[in-house]
Each structure stands twice: as structure tokens, then as C-alpha cells.
Amino acid sequence: MLDTAASPADSAPGATWTRKDLLDTDTLTRAEIDLVLETARGMREVRSRPVSKVSTLRGVTVATLFYEQSTRTRASFEVAAKALGADVVNLTASGSSVEKGETLIDTVRTLEAIGADIIVMRHSRSGAPYLAARHTAASIVNGGDGTHAHPTQALLDLYTMVERLGSLEGRKVVIVGDVLHSRVARSNAWTLLRYGADVVFCGPATLLPRSFVPSVDGRACSISTDLDSAIEGADVVMALRMQKERQQRGLIPSIREYIANYQINAARLARARQGALLMHPGPMNEGIEVSPDVAHGAQSLVEEQVANGVAVRMALLYLIAARSRT
């Protein structure tokens, strides 16, 4: 067991982790999410010690397999794995056999044969971790797949919000920007709805879903193209990264117009509830989706998100490695 005071079994009675893989947040139960957050609290405590490492996962090999560039997610997983005493192998698509045409299935099987117990994977194609998970006995942790899901980001965001706000029941969370192409928005919606929050997707009509929004127990996300009214009374405002190529693809007239209508700045944030929290999954385009003063202002949780990310990923790696195989 984990050598911290907060043992997950004590604090979340009844809940156990049985999943081999973490692919998205959509099928996670409230009890499973509670368990992740509770375990993460213990991990934060470990991180706050003078020697912030334990040897719980000694002998466990975690491979990071990144087909898409990432600094914080990959580094966060690596730090998390090492903080638990795991061995870490890092692979990127460039400079590996992937460039020589190796298929995803062959790559994950090779990693499994090398001895990887957990493969943290990022891929530009939606659903890729699902394919990998079906073809390896190793655990797959989705570190972001295409425009589909980013479950560890959603769980660290949820952790950060719960730490700040306590219960999320009835809290208003406005997610702003390119929701349609955002794996962060979708995965966040599932966990937030399960915690009783009111979730609003806000952005230009071309960057919002038209036929599908996440819903849990009959409660669905709402949709708005008008940020100034959507942001009113918000407890949390989450700005999404705006990719400049959306303009080239004709999805928005210009970045300038996007800024005018959707940038989170001091004036807009003032329309939210007083002291509302500003979040961003990073990396930020300061001056585009968020103004620099707000990005680094008192309401910004951006750095806290990153710090919490390590604890939440430690929790997930721990739960998956120690899962009960029923």
C-alpha cells in the first residue's frame, strides 16, 4: 500500500479501482472520481514533504509514448511516475520506429514486451488509445487523443476546482473557445456534470458542437455564442487554447474578431461572480484567448493546475498499478 497517512481505502470506503486503462472520463462513476481525488490529496501531501518521493511503484515501468508534441503533460507524467519510484521510458514519434512505419499496435506490443506496465499515450488521432488498449495487456493512460478526450487534464481541473470551491453542486463553469475541437472541454464536461456543476460551452458557432453535448443523468451542457451573457455569475471560467490555423481554415473571420468577442480579459471576468476562478489547460496564447493581466492575475489558477497535475497523475498511476483485478 501507499506509505502515506491518507490511505485511499480509509477515506473512500467501498470504492476500488479495477480499470486496466484510463481512456476518458465519460464512463467513470462518481465513486471512482472521488477515489482519484482522495488519492491525489494524499499525493499532494507526499509532494509537500522535504523528500517528495516514495518507492510505492518501485519495479513498475511507465512508458510515455507521445505522437504529438507536449511539454507539460509528458513532463508531468514523468515527474509523477518518478515521484512514486517507477522507472520511466520516454518515446516520441520522431526518432523512433514509428517514423519507420511501425503501426501503433506493434509499437505498444513492443513496449509491453520491453516490460512497460503502464503506457501513457498522446496521439493526434481520436480513438488511438482505444485501439492500443485492445491490443496490449499493458495499461493505457490517455494523455490526449486528437479532438476526443484528455481525461487526466479533466481530473486535475476537477481536483483544482474542488480544492478551491468545495462542492461543485450548482456551480457555473463556462468553457470558452474552440469547444468542438477540444479534448479538454469534452472530458471536463463529463466530470463536472457528474459533480453537479452547470456547464456552459461558449464560442463562435463554427467551433461549437451542433448535434451532441455531454449529459449525465439527464443534465446536459448548455451552449452559447454570447460570452458576455454566458459569463454572468460564473464560478469558473475556463479558456481554451485558440489555434491560429482556425482562421486559415475559415472557421473564424480573424483572430482579431475572436479576441473582440471571446477573449477573457479583466472587463469580462468582472461580469462573472466576484472572485471567480480563471483556468486554462495550457499552453496559453496570451493576448488571444486570455489577456496577460488576467492570465497572471489573482484569479488565475493556471500554475496551480500544473502543480495539481502531478499529484493527480501520481494518483492515477498508483491506482492503475495497484488495481484489484476482479
Binding site: S126, G127, D145, G146, H148, R183, S211, F212
Partner: peptide
């Protein structure tokens, strides 16, 4: 097909 399933799956 573009619709509810493609938006759910990010395809």
C-alpha cells in the same frame, strides 16, 4: 457521418 456520434468521438 457528421453528427452526434462524430462529435462525441471527436472524429
Amino acid at each position: 457521418n457528421e453528427g452526434a456520434v462524430s462529435e462525441r468521438l471527436g472524429l
